[in-house]
Design a protein around this nucleic acid. Structure first.
Lengths: 199, 199
DNA sequence: CTATTTTTATATCGAGTACTATACAAATAC
DNA sequence: GTATTTGTATAGTACTCGATATAAAAATAG
């Protein structure tokens, strides 16, 4: 579905939009929405401010594009984990394990962009946008959990989100992968016990 | 130990430093270190910028004073909870329950200032400062846990911190107290199971 | 009283913010 | 070719940021 736009009429764009988005993604992930200015974004992307605004509208829309790209590229592990396992508690345990890996995979971009990219952010639109993406993740979890434990699915999804946020924040605070793994295992054990007690 | 400074020599200060700190605490708690400017701080405190700088040094030192005041006033529940219970797992369960209450007690200042006051913050000193206060909380947890489970105390303390950060973030995202309670109970169950398995 | 000390208010500082008006460059349409 | 469309570059908008220089105001010390 790559709409490559055969060729426009005027002067062709000289920079690669996708590479630009990748650079913006790195910066936003490292320091959050407020932490990166348009000046730095355009400098690192190798373009001037007018080119940036022409291509992406404004800083907030650029952030939205970055979030969409991030989810498209980096949330596969979450979706697939929810699909591949049989019981919810095992799936969530695997989820925490993989989150620990993903959140510490790149030392320059620890944690999750969706969970931490606009925390304590001043821009209302950026906050809302980020919340929308977090909500989508919650819905994904909720739907999967509801397949087995419908009545408590919303609360259990919130539990998983809370753990993921905690893991992401811990990763950003420098906690190692192995320690994150251990933390995730305990959190998963709690869920297993809770589900067993419901059964 | 209130060094009241009998009376200086020059013109006496016209504003109440402690009331000013309380106002700054509210603002920092609502929107984080970067979210509040010196202009707004001084306006809300009812003083001018030079008075603020004369009294507190700079924005970062003001933040430090606020954090110290916050811990002094609002961390009693944590310390007392760690002391009053017999077994660690029960104490931590109570801790999560009280955290759920405290983090949602004031709708205008959800979550914890220490855990979320300088997350994604641009000012390096403010970040470091905040990390120092978080570290102190971790040490408190670690010492208490080590009384019963010395070898795994650091990891278990990190687990508790991760849950608290998750609960604080959830509170800031609008999750209700009752839901936070439920989440905390599951997290506490995980810890109980883990401790039981250790023998 | 005068001299000293400290706090106050006014009015800014330079740097940084997101964003853009204008002019020029490079492509296509005809 | 000329006209049109679009991207780029320079330079700048108005605003906010944290922090201050200056001087007037209000207290004490002697």
């Amino acid at each position: 579905m790559t709409t490559k736009k055969i060729r426009g009429r005027g002067r062709p764009r000289e920079f690669d939009v996708d590479k630009g988005l990748a650079i913006a993604q790195q910066l936003f992930h490292q320091r959050g929405f407020d932490g990166v200015g348009v000046a730095e974004l355009s400098r690192e992307m190798g373009i001037t401010a007018p080119s940036l605004y022409s291509a992406f509208g404004n800083k907030c829309e650029l952030f939205e594009r970055v979030l969409a790209k991030y989810v498209e590229e980096k949330s596969g592990w979450l979706v697939s984990t929810l699909q591949e396992e049989n019981s919810v508690d095992v799936a969530i345990a695997t989820l925490f394990k993989r989150a620990s890996e993903v959140y510490t995979a790149d030392v320059n971009q620890p944690g999750c962009l969706v969970l931490d990219g606009a925390r304590n952010c001043n821009d209302a639109k950026a906050c809302e946008l980020n919340a929308k993406f977090r909500q989508a993740t919650w819905q994904l979890l909720c739907d999967r959990i509801a397949e087995e434990h419908a009545p408590k699915a919303p609360m259990l999804a919130s539990y998983v989100m809370t753990i993921l946020v905690g893991l992401s924040a811990a990763a950003r605070d420098g906690v190692s992968e192995s320690e994150l793994q251990a933390i995730g295992e305990i959190a998963a054990a709690g869920l297993s016990v809770h589900i067993a007690q419901m059964g």
